[in-house]
Amino acid sequence: MNIREFAAHCKLSIASVSRALNNPPETAQMSRKTYDYVHAEARELGYRPNYHARAFHTHRSGCVGIIGGSSMKYIGIALLEGIADVLDDRGIATYLASTRDEIEREAGAFDRMFYRNVDAIIHMPALQEGEYRTDRLAGLLKNNPGHPPILSILGGAEIPGTFRLRMKDAEAGREAALRQLKLGCRRFGVIGTLRRSPAENDGIRAYRNTLFENGVSPLNIREISIRHNFPDSRQEELRDIDGAWIVYYLLVPTCFQVLRRVCDPKKLHIDTVSTLENRELLLWLQLDADCALSIRDHFASLNIFQYSVYRIGVQTGETVVKLINAPALKPYTQELEWNQFLPGITGPETAAPDSPE
């Protein structure tokens, strides 16, 4: 049965049947009664539209590409669930490519998605040592002027011609520095990872620059990058610090024993960033009963800028649908408030970002 025969069976126009089958009810431009009737008849007859024909006539593949770095290991499930909950309802499929934080693989993933004519691309940049390098991707996009809209998320890189959806990472770093200065901190530590996203670099840069702007000498700011373990040779650099910016909440347990060894934790104020999913996972695993369950109690203060990866995924899906349906939109950056993605969870570690507690 083709669409013409199915429309005749429903006693509706081909256009009406097509709108019902290819759109969610809120954009199908018909009554909900008619919309439900068309879908009920399609189920009864086992009718499914020919998506190859649809793609040919609409010039859309009905597929969105997702390109992710190694951060997908930590947030992938929740992020993909949020994206899928939006796209699945609209009949949009996804095509996932992992970069393993390799620039060549990242560029190759873009090239393959251009070839497959995806309707949009969601891009989570590969983690890199130092600043994120955009020259290869910028050249690839320049050579493909008709590329689909690209949405760079969670610290998305500033690549010309792309959209960005991100948290206010620079604002978090700035607020952390001001909070610690207000509490009387004078010696500071920055603890990050060797491979970082653009967002993490933004937070570190803002934290460091805010300290400089408020008269802190570079000699009183120690920056250390670690992998999974804290190197013995670098521990003394954090001796007697009283303020710290730690790029991930998951690094706090890794650093805990070192910080307790080289400074007085009860005089140490820490600011960090965490997804709600990772924080809950850490507490559930109880990696260290001495610190995971009551880690805040070991420091003078521990302030966490939190967000929900699932809700970021939902926002990502909704934004991608908007970009697909409005191809004339000019690239823009949307920054999301931290507390915008805090569900109603209570507890000592959900204090507002500017709280000294």
Results as ranks from 00 to 15, higher is better:
residue 148 P to K: 01
residue 17 V to P: 03
residue 217 S to K: 03
residue 163 F to S: 08
residue 37 Y to N: 08
residue 197 S to H: 12
residue 143 N to R: 15
residue 336 L to P: 03
residue 315 Q to M: 12
residue 163 F to V: 15
residue 351 A to K: 11
residue 247 V to A: 08
residue 84 A to Y: 15
residue 313 G to P: 10
residue 213 E to M: 10
residue 333 T to Q: 06
residue 193 T to I: 12
residue 59 H to M: 10
residue 137 L to N: 05
residue 343 P to L: 00
residue 264 D to M: 03
residue 90 R to C: 10
residue 13 S to V: 03
residue 163 F to M: 04
residue 171 E to M: 15
residue 347 G to Y: 01
residue 61 S to N: 05
residue 15 A to I: 09
residue 263 C to N: 00
residue 15 A to R: 06
residue 56 F to M: 13
residue 69 G to C: 02
residue 224 I to P: 10
residue 60 R to M: 03
residue 29 Q to T: 14
residue 326 A to L: 10
residue 43 R to K: 14
residue 115 Y to E: 07
residue 77 I to L: 13
residue 57 H to C: 03
residue 197 S to G: 14
residue 149 P to W: 05
residue 250 L to C: 07
residue 263 C to W: 00
residue 102 E to A: 10
residue 267 K to M: 07
residue 242 D to E: 05
residue 324 I to S: 11
residue 231 P to W: 03
residue 171 E to L: 08
residue 5 E to D: 03
residue 250 L to S: 10
residue 6 F to I: 12
residue 185 C to P: 06
residue 199 A to W: 01
residue 329 L to Y: 01
residue 215 G to L: 15
residue 32 R to V: 14
residue 78 A to G: 04
residue 119 D to T: 04
residue 20 A to V: 15
residue 106 E to L: 12
residue 317 G to H: 06
residue 124 M to L: 15
residue 79 L to F: 09
residue 278 N to T: 15
residue 120 A to C: 11
residue 100 R to D: 02
residue 72 M to K: 05
residue 145 P to K: 02
residue 163 F to T: 07
residue 75 I to Q: 00
residue 350 T to M: 14
